[in-house]
């Protein structure tokens, strides 16, 4: 077997595929096959069905009200080819959200399958558990959590507007990587309404055990939300300086 490179011990610092060794200019057989396997698993994660029912049940178990919704994309294949449909609610879901809306709230939360239902299955509930603490601390009024199938980030704009929220946070399965089929992304948008651009959002990515912890992600999202409410915006003009705060006041950092 072709040996790994002598700096292999540094691989403990990163999930990246370093110090793989080589045969001539090329990858050793073992790594070529290991890569093929990871690709096969990531392909499977894209196409795994979203279990919205269990998800809704578990989120209700945390004490949130829950609403189910679907995008206008009626199948996985249509979802992949027609992102415009994944950004809109189905007519039926639009009615359901409009009927469920109460008075004005501070925050709407959308749990969307995105490109990895695996990520949502694994991360959404523990993240919401951590976020609940921040919500209670801040005293924010929260709309029912929307669990949305075949959904993209911008679907949150319509959902947030219907639920009369000052801001919407979309929890969504990120496109699965070879080493991370289960990574959750968080997108925060102030004053949600259809037509918002991506430059008007703040993003926190890589929420998973090997990436950003649920507690740290909840801390960051709450920091951004406070700043968004204070300054009346999200997006490129709102720079995430929560790490500065965290560095200044170590106690504010949640445990790893």
């Amino acid at each position: 077997m072709t040996p790994r490179d002598p700096w292999f011990s540094f691989a403990r610092h990163t999930p990246a595929r370093i110090a793989l060794g080589r045969t001539g200019a090329s990858l050793p057989t073992e790594e070529v096959l290991r890569f093929s396997l990871a690709h096969a698993q990531a392909r499977d994660a894209v196409h795994a069905p979203f279990d919205a029912e269990s998800m809704a049940h578990a989120i209700a178990g945390l004490g949130f009200k829950v609403l189910r919704a679907e995008s206008a994309a009626t199948s996985r294949d249509m979802y992949l080819r027609r992102p415009d449909l994944g950004r809109r609610l189905s007519d039926e879901s639009r009615l359901r959200l409009a009927e469920a809306a109460g008075g004005d709230v501070d925050l709407a939360l959308v749990v969307a399958d995105g490109l990895s239902s695996t990520a949502v299955h694994v991360q959404a509930v523990p993240f919401l558990h951590a976020l609940k603490g921040e919500i209670e601390k801040a005293g924010w009024r929260v709309a029912p959590v929307v669990v949305a199938r075949e959904a993209r980030v911008a679907l949150g704009d319509e959902a947030g507007a219907l639920l009369r929220a000052r801001a919407v946070a979309v929890l969504i399965g990120e496109r699965p990587g070879l080493s991370s089929p289960d990574s959750l992304g968080l997108y925060l948008t102030f004053a949600p309404r259809p037509g918002r651009s991506d430059a008007e959002r703040n993003c926190i990515s890589n929420v998973r055990a090997e990436g950003l912890s649920h507690e740290a992600a909840a801390f960051k999202l709450a920091w951004l939300l406070r700043e968004a409410f204070r300054r009346g915006l999200t997006g490129v003009d709102l720079k995430d300086e929560s790490d500065l705060i965290a560095a200044d006041t170590r106690v504010a950092l949640p445990p790893k």
């Binding site: 370093i18 200019a25 090329s26 990587g177």
Partner: peptide, 18 residues
């Protein structure tokens, strides 16, 4: 050039040092 062609942050496959 990405270690093993696997970008562990952006979640896509590109080209490797090899």
């Amino acid at each position: 050039g990405i270690p093993g062609a696997d970008d562990v942050m952006l979640n896509y496959q590109s080209t490797s040092f090899h």
